[in-house]
């Protein structure tokens, strides 16, 4: 087996006495597209900054392409970072923003012009080369920032929440753009997101973080279908998670007996996995929201709140109405983790 392209070994990152990321271990191969997923404040940006060399680790090592770069300064690490705020240079034109790093490298002028134009062309901004960033739209600024990183041909491109500042339509466009650039160049990319759907859609592998620790690493398929912890399940859309013990499910409000056998641990259902209209359990509709194709119910049951979402074609229930529901075995996801 070849050695990994990026290797983080027992990486501990701290701000003064406050340890933000304790003993992180992670590796990935060349050309992989990795998503760093997790709630705000879990240490994603901190991890990125240390890979880029902007934050010195308290302990541990960072290897890139087989070399220990832990003590290599940021300006020599050949790593691109696209900041959440883009961090474009407001006093320079689009062209000069992209050419900035090439000029620092002191490449011959002809080569700078050629590479810069090619970079601008790749992101479809050649016609705006003379505009200042402030005269560009959010999406254009973002693509400019991408071009500025890409022309340097970095070993790794890090992207901090690359899509979070864009509106829904641009987000889809930019998502496609990132995928295309990654496919065309084969560059190793790590991007940060707190949006599970973004990670699932884009990444080859997802690293799910919680409080500075890695909760689970896996392909989108693995994370979506087989979350290994309550946190992972919750983060990936299993909104109904209950502790199970002796075939009794225990909720915040009470207990209900299970009509199938289960080991002790946790059971989780997505809202779409809850059946309503029939079943052995009773609940009252607390609220209902119409979402086009589907109707999203919040139910008040014996064990607590149940989230259910069903096709809008089915019979609808009003707030305050009683109904029967079921938590079917076929839709249940078992998590070994005890409380």
């Amino acid at each position: 087996m070849s050695s990994p392209y990026i290797l983080l070994k027992d990486l501990t990152l701290a701000y003064g006495d406050m340890v933000a990321v304790p003993k992180l271990n992670f590796s990935c191969d060349k050309g992989e597209l990795i998503a760093l997923l997790g709630p705000s404040g879990c240490g994603k940006t901190t991890t990125m900054r240390s890979i880029a060399g902007l934050l010195a680790p308290q302990s541990g090592q960072i290897y890139i392409d087989g070399k220990d770069v832990t003590n290599v300064p940021a300006n020599k690490r050949e790593i691109g970072l696209m900041f959440q705020s883009y961090a474009l240079f407001p006093h320079l034109s689009g062209f000069e923003n992209v050419a900035f790093g090439l000029r620092i490298k002191k490449l011959p002028e002809a080569e700078i012009v050629e590479k810069t134009n090619k970079g601008l062309d790749t992101v479809g901004l050649l016609h705006l080369a003379n505009r200042k960033p402030s005269e560009m739209s959010g999406g254009q600024q973002q693509r400019l920032a991408l071009a500025r990183s890409m022309v340097m041909e970095p070993k790794v491109l890090l992207l901090d929440e690359p899509l979070s500042n864009l509106d829904a339509r641009l987000r889809l466009e930019m998502r496609a753009e990132l995928q295309r650039v990654q496919r065309e160049t084969g560059i190793t990319m790590i991007f940060v997101t707190h949006d599970q759907s973004e990670a699932l859609a884009l990444a080859d592998r997802i690293v799910l973080m919680k409080d500075g620790l890695i909760e689970q690493i896996g392909t989108p398929d693995e994370l979506y279908n087989k979350p290994t912890s309550v946190f992972a399940a919750d983060f990936l859309g299993f909104e109904n998670i209950f502790e199970v013990s002796n075939n009794v499910i225990i909720g915040d409000a009470g207990k209900m007996s299970l009509d199938f056998k289960s080991e002790s641990g946790h059971l989780a259902w997505r809202p779409s996995g809850v059946k309503i209209g029939q079943g052995k359990y009773k609940a009252v509709v607390k609220s209902v929201a119409f979402a086009g194709e589907r109707r999203e119910y919040v139910l008040d049951a014996e064990i607590g709140v149940i989230m259910a979402d069903v096709s809008a074609q089915k019979k609808s229930y009003k707030i305050g109405e009683s109904l029967a529901f079921d938590l079917p075995k076929s839709e249940a996801h078992f998590i070994e983790q005890a409380s």
Binding site: F83, A87, L88, F89, H91, F100, G101
Partner: peptide
Amino acid sequence: DMEEAAVLLGCTRLSAFFKVVLPN
């Protein structure tokens, strides 16, 4: 982060100051 961006593009801290802070 503008200065950090300049550093990641190859500037030293000092040259980042002259190239991106001072002009702004």
